[in-house]
């Protein structure tokens, strides 16, 4: 009896592993298939433009307002700590570097996963549930080219732009708090920022990060939607997986990218 219970436990681990590997394999093949069908998304640019509208334009408000507030909080807290060491003048570079390197891409990515990624997953999942995808296949329209690829590219194109906007709004928020309210000198704020932040590698690395996050979140969103169980529960579970998986993927990728990008920068 205990032996069979043990065997059951081991069997469950095995089944879980096989399932995870199978899903990873399916996701990889799916990714390749989406890339293969991408020319269709660019040939019919109207479809992709529509998805940029839904993923990007409609996320503008949440991204810009969050960026503004994150920047204002950074300005307040950063000044508080820096001023203890008499370095309140370094507020500009502190805020600029944290936003451009980390917070811009990461927080914009997290917001993007929950605002746009979940919507894409729910939409594709519901299409699958209501058999619209099968209907398309019956009409010899490839749903990968017609539905999935435009949504994927809409997300990939929107994400870097949203991250850049987030950083700009953050810098603006810090400017309002630091310069307008606290009274850091205007010239010092911008001068320190420009002296300490290089276009290459700081800003370009931030952009590379946001592109990678865009690819990751968009792929997870379309994959979870396409792979969802065709039931109401299945769609809701897939939406949750998009948000949780997308957020975790962003944070993990951020760590990996940071290790490769900024390791050893300081010691030349």
């Amino acid at each position: 009896m205990p032996l069979s219970a043990l065997a059951d436990g081991v069997r469950r681990i095995g089944a879980g592993t096989v399932h995870a590997i199978a899903r990873a394999g399916f996701a990889t093949r799916f990714f390749v298939a989406v890339i293969m069908h991408s020319p269709a998304a660019f040939r019919r640019l109207q479809l992709t433009a529509r998805e940029i509208y839904f993923s990007g334009v409609l996320s503008l408000v949440v991204i810009m307002v969050s960026g503004l507030f994150v920047g204002m909080v950074l300005g307040l807290q950063g000044y508080d700590v820096l001023n203890k060491y008499g370095a309140g003048d370094s507020l500009g570079i502190f805020v600029g570097l944290s936003l451009v390197r980390e917070l811009g891409p990461v927080v914009a990515g997290l917001l993007f996963a929950s605002r746009a990624g979940s919507a894409v997953t729910a939409e594709i999942g519901l299409m699958k549930t209501t058999e619209q995808l099968s209907a398309m296949e019956m009409m010899a329209v490839d749903p990968l080219a017609r539905i999935v690829a435009p949504r994927f590219w809409g997300g990939v194109i929107s994400m870097p732009l949203l991250a850049a906007l987030f950083s700009v709004m953050g810098v603006f928020g810090a400017y309002i708090v630091g310069v307008r309210l606290i009274g850091v000198d205007n010239g010092t704020f911008w001068g320190n920022m420009q002296a300490g932040i290089e276009f290459w590698p700081d800003i370009t690395n931030g952009i590379v990060k946001s592109i990678v996050f865009g690819i990751a979140v968009s792929l997870i969103a379309v994959f979870e939607g396409y792979d969802a169980k065709p039931t109401a529960e299945g769609v809701s579970a897939a939406t949750t997986r998009t948000v949780v998986g997308g957020s975790l993927a962003i944070l993990a990728l951020d760590f990996i990218l940071t290790v490769f990008m900024f390791r050893g920068l300081g010691n030349g």
Binding site: V100, P160, A164, L165, S167, V171, F199, I203, G206, I207
Partner: peptide
């Protein structure tokens, strides 16, 4: 925004 980051922030 990217141009702003490049010119004004960097």
């Amino acid at each position: 925004a990217i141009v702003f980051l490049a010119l004004k922030v960097g």
